[in-house]
């Protein structure tokens, strides 16, 4: 099992990992929190849009889409076992 810190936009399709921290401008950050992206939660990158951006992730039992620009704010620990 390998572990390393990257941001969510660097995830590849099929990657799983835990949220370490969320950064960013106030409004975007609050939105990310409100949608359930909080430290400790596990995220799965299900797919990318046909043009490569935005991305689709699964967390807390539902699907969320966000742009790579916004995903940059989410610090992750990759955990592909």
């Amino acid at each position: 099992m390998k572990k390393k810190e990257i941001t969510l936009d660097e995830f590849r399709i099929g990657d799983k990992g835990f949220v370490l921290n969320v950064l960013g401008e106030k409004r975007v950050k609050r939105r990310l929190f409100d949608m359930g992206i909080t430290p400790g939660i596990e995220i799965y990158l299900r797919k990318k849009a046909p043009l490569g951006d935005p991305i689709e992730i699964t967390l807390r039992g539902y699907e969320l889409t966000l742009r790579k620009d916004e995903a940059k704010n989410v610090i992750m620990e990759v955990n592909n076992d």
Partner: peptide, 9 residues
């Protein structure tokens, strides 16, 4: 505007 949106079932 930010694009952080649920993809509903």
């Amino acid at each position: 505007p930010p694009f952080i949106m649920e993809l509903p079932t």
